[in-house]
Amino acid sequence: MIENIKEVKKDELLAEVKKFADAKARFVTAVCNDLGDKLEVTYFFNMSPGMEMHGLRMTVGKDEEVPSTTGIFLTTVLIENEMKEMFGLKVKDIAIDFGGHMLLAQDSPVTPMLKTGAAGGKGGE
């Protein structure tokens, strides 16, 4: 189990993230999980200075739009673009939008990290 994770609704996300920004926390990363019919996104923050970590978790449908946190933490720009192209998470208004081709090239498979994604083999066999 991971400690200090708080479940939030999609609409509360920005307000909760703002609280971390006001507390001078450092954004660590976000993790996206494919739960079958839904996506689970967890944002992790480190309470600087120190090594205490807190998380915000929200569960959204695959076709729901999600607000971007880049207005509060610029550094989330990479991870939001990555979640967008790997999982098809619909994040709107990212500060720098790579248009689904930050890591993936034009001819790469689309949303390869989804469980249903036909994404090549295991490697190394």
Partner: peptide, 10 residues
């Protein structure tokens, strides 16, 4: 391709 030869982007 080594350990990555089957990965989707390789």
């Amino acid at each position: 391709g080594g350990v990555f030869h089957n990965c989707y982007n390789i």
